[in-house]
Design a protein around this nucleic acid. Structure first.
Lengths: 212, 212
DNA sequence: GTGACAAGTTTACGGCGTCAACATCGTCTC
DNA sequence: GAGACGATGTTGACGCCGTAAACTTGTCAC
């Protein structure tokens, strides 16, 4: 024992559940969903392999928590991108700027944190509590997208008939673009990647915006 | 031993590599990428656990083969959807019909075979040989998409300036829609799902097609 | 025939998720 | 205070997984 004083760790951790989720997030960042390994998370927290079972019924439970944290970080990244928008007063321009920011935030998060992004959309759990999956403003990634679409609608640049379809279509375009850039198109050099993102969002926007 | 006659299996399998890939495809159908388990594939083929190592350097090798097979099936599904198109002679209408068929084939395959679809886009292998990943006509899923876009271009309904961006944008919209419908939106009832697919493709198409 | 090589087998190792049994702590009651 | 008790961690064990090493069986070339 090298550290005297209060260094001796107590028998009980105190906040093991959160610590394990935190470790799980780190593992997910390093290697995606499959890298979330119960024994390794426990090891990193400095606790025995089976201690996690006092807080999670099994591994998928922990993965679900990590997924919620990942979704929250996605929302935070989108909010950060939104913060960089400076409104001009032109409702139409501002609405589209917000829509672009939301989309860019989504895709850039996927590129910056591919492991977390993959965990966030791991499909083997039914539903995630929205409260834990949200960002600073309490809104989820999807909420942020819906809000941008509502502003486009309010600005008269989106047909009411399109409001419904636009919801899933917008999500699909940013999600698909993210998955492709992180996966099959992962060898695109960064500059080309940025161009692709802008062009894709623009082409998609033309389908939404009412031609005047 | 209950079966007499020629039932005694030979020491050498004869076509073990293919048999293992076939078993891997079946496992992937049942449970996605994580369900591809070497020992189980060997068990199903009736061979010892380590026999696979005579044909694959390790598990990721087998997964890669399964992924190629899955991509091939995706292309086949898209070709089948294309076969149902009856050309009208109107180049513009036919081009868009083909585009829709390609997109529908993509999304419907994902919904019909979510496990294979997930394996096809598992991201931990660099590249897949296009020959093995193609369908009946020797074209990959992406090739089929590009061909539809070329026809739209030839029919004058797609601006040459958009031809480049349209490539990835189209892929992104069908891919993102597939991932969402199989994942986070998996509880959508089938009829609503079909409506979403049609509406999404239509909204996206409006962004591509030159407004006359 | 015999020797080399390809293809399958057995055995073994460490890592994983998980269960059952045991240990330690704070807390609540008398 | 004393002691019971529930929540939290630990140890040990089990079966499954991927993989490596050494051995066995079949085939074909000479």
């Amino acid at each position: 024992m090298t550290l005297p004083g209060p260094g001796k760790q107590p028998y009980h951790h105190g906040d093991l559940a959160n610590a394990l989720v935190q470790a799980g997030v780190e593992l997910a960042r390093e290697g995606g969903p499959d890298a979330i390994v119960l024994r390794e998370a426990a090891r990193r927290v400095g606790v025995s392999a089976t201690a996690a079972y006092r807080h999670f019924s099994a591994l998928p439970d922990l993965v679900e928590e990590v997924a919620a944290a990942a979704l929250s970080r996605l929302a935070l990244a989108m909010e950060a991108e939104l913060d960089r928008c400076r409104p001009t007063g032109d409702a139409r321009a501002d609405a589209w700027t917000e829509m672009l920011a939301v989309g860019r935030g989504y895709v850039h998060f996927a590129l910056a944190e591919p492991g977390l992004f993959a965990v966030a959309f791991t499909r083997d759990k039914p539903a995630v509590d929205n409260a834990r999956a949200s960002g600073r403003t309490g809104l989820t990634a999807r909420d942020l997208l819906e809000r941008a679409l509502d502003k486009m609608l309010a600005a008269g640049m989106l047909s009411p008939d399109d409001r419904g379809p636009a919801s899933i279509a917008s999500w699909a375009i940013v999600h698909g673009l993210s998955e492709l850039l992180v996966g099959k198109l992962s060898d695109l050099p960064a500059p080309a990647r940025e161009a692709v993102i802008e062009q894709t969002l623009e082409v998609f926007g033309r389908g939404l915006i009412i031609r005047e």
